[in-house]
Design a protein around this nucleic acid. Structure first.
Ligand SMILES: [Mn+2]
Ligand SMILES: [Mn+2]
Ligand SMILES: [Mn+2]
Ligand SMILES: [Mn+2]
Lengths: 229, 229
DNA sequence: GACCAAATTTTGAATGTCCAAAATTAAAGC
DNA sequence: GCTTTAATTTTGGACATTCAAAATTTGGTC
């Protein structure tokens, strides 16, 4: 029995449920899962019990849910399809990076392995999608490397945007318009808790100030002198 | 309520149910519909009653089913997506014409209008798919022109293959290997009822003999002297 | 230790899709 | 006109997914 779209969406939501890093101890609360999927809490409970039956998750009543090894692999493969499709839509089909997420959300469940392999090949085995999110390999493995956000990176140093962790179209358009897309080199000049804002020096030393909530969604890494001029 | 994949498949099956040409009188028998969709007869009956409820088909118990105007338009749009996707997979993704049907069978239900428009544009508003099947317009209209098959075309005259009306991969591979794909110029030398076979002169005047059943699946039109050298 | 609020689970029910097997109808032959 | 047969519909039930509302559990708070 191959998994339905619904099952794939549940697994993906659990996989993406916050950090979920190293230690396999963290449980995703049912309420958070239900919210992520836009279903009633009771629906999530019923579904998760079924997923536990089929060995895709471990479920601790009143506590939360966690992916099993099998579930994690499946989730990673769905994510792989999602991100390859996004990149394909941007690079080959010429769609905007702000309009590919919804399309990929559907297609991720319906493209064959054959076609995904072809897409992967055509794109040159890419490692990240248009938003900088890493693309899991065909084996389900992901290269997770730590990175700062605009809230945590050092002040006064050039950094390179690596990832934008919010798929909302208006936010993505904002990022694009202000030249904060992955690959751009920028610098955090100052942060101010009181005004809840971060001041940036962007492309062409253009100054801009954004809120901390927005700043937390832009990930960066130290601008290695060797990369870019 | 946008139609489910199931509904779209039912409408498409009825649309494709044999000739279905001009006069809107023909009804598709329920048994044939059930067989086309691979479901039990009772399932088709139940479903068709629901489709009649929503005004997509007209249903005459014990007699059969026919598309309403609304149903026909919807079916044509599904077919449009199907055929554009097939052509896209062949031309852009480099898949074989024998392996795109199944993929399109899924994707036809899940690509957005936006993406289909982009595909149509990228392909230069094509009129036929890789098998020579006409692609309905965005308004649902199809250019239906009459054509012969290898069983009905004149003997001893050059004709051009326009269409292959069987999606089975082995058959398509046979056609490809024998250079009988759409665009090829060939000639029917003889037909023999007793041996149930048709003798052809193909590319490079290569002779071959195929069965009448197979011959009926290859459509041709008179080789206009102006087309091809 | 009783009590409250929030999170979670349970219950009862709906929808869409499907099947197998029984019942019915239509068509054809005699 | 009856009978046989093939096609079709009905019946009863399954499964996946969903919801709203009621019941329960949990983690604090006094
Ligand atoms: Mn999805
Ligand atoms: Mn992405
Ligand atoms: Mn289909
Ligand atoms: Mn085709």
């Amino acid at each position: 029995m191959l998994p339905s779209s619904t099952v794939e969406n549940y697994l993906k939501a659990i996989y993406l449920g916050e950090g979920y890093l190293a230690e396999g101890q963290r449980l995703m609360p049912m309420g958070q899962l239900a919210a992520a999927l836009g279903v009633a809490p009771g629906t999530a409970t019923t579904m998760v019990k079924a997923l536990a039956e089929s060995g895709l998750v471990e479920y601790e009543p009143y506590n939360g849910v966690r992916l099993s090894a099998a579930g994690e692999k499946l989730a990673a493969l769905v994510l792989r399809r999602h991100r390859l499709i996004e990149l394909f839509l941007v690079r080959v089909m010429g769609l905007g990076w702000d309009e590919v997420h919804d399309e990929a959300e559907q297609l991720e469940h319906h493209v064959s392995d054959r076609l995904i392999e072809r897409i992967d090949e055509m794109l040159g085995r890419p490692e990240v999608d248009p938003h900088g999110d890493p693309i899991p390999g065909a084996d389900g493995r992901v290269a997770r490397h730590e990175s700062d956000t605009l809230l945590t990176c050092p002040l006064g140093e050039r950094v390179t945007v690596t990832r934008v962790t919010d798929q909302e179209a208006p936010f993505l358009r904002f990022i694009e318009q202000h030249h904060l897309m992955p690959g751009e080199s920028i610098e955090v000049e100052a942060r101010d808790e009181v005004s809840d804002s971060v001041r940036l020096k962007g492309r062409g030393n253009q100054r801009m100030t954004i809120g901390m909530r927005a700043a937390s969604k832009v990930r960066v890494s130290a601008s290695d002198a060797s990369s870019r001029g």
